[in-house]
Amino acid sequence: MQFTANDAYMRNYQLLIPSDCVASNSTEKNERALHTMKEVLKANTSASSQIELH
């Protein structure tokens, strides 16, 4: 998940990573990954019901 997000970020894509649509080996790792993608890669990590696609 993080490598794909990083590649997209480097190519100037807007990142939409719904927090309720991803999984990791543990809750802690999942939260850490989402936090990194939100803070470092400027991803929108809102829940899928909160993301509007145009």
Score class of each variant (00 low, 15 high):
F3N: 09
E31C: 09
N6D: 08
K42F: 06
N25F: 09
Q50S: 15
T36Y: 14
M1H: 07
A43C: 04
K29M: 09
L34E: 03
I51V: 07
K42Y: 05
D7F: 12
M10N: 12
N44V: 05
S49I: 13
N44P: 02
E39K: 13
E52G: 14
A47T: 06
F3G: 12
E31K: 11
Q50P: 01
M10V: 12
A47K: 14
M1T: 05
S24M: 10
N25W: 04
M1V: 07
K42N: 06
R32W: 03
T36R: 07
S46E: 06
Q2F: 13
A43L: 04
H35S: 12
H54T: 15
R32I: 06
L41T: 01
Q14M: 13
N12Q: 13
S26K: 05
E39V: 10
A8Q: 02
V22R: 08
I51R: 03
I17V: 09
F3P: 02
Q14I: 13
P18T: 10
S19H: 05
L41W: 07
A8N: 01
D20Q: 04
A23E: 07
Y9W: 15
C21S: 13
L15A: 02
S24W: 02
L16A: 06
Y9E: 03
Q14H: 09
Y13P: 02
M1Y: 08
S48P: 04
A47F: 07
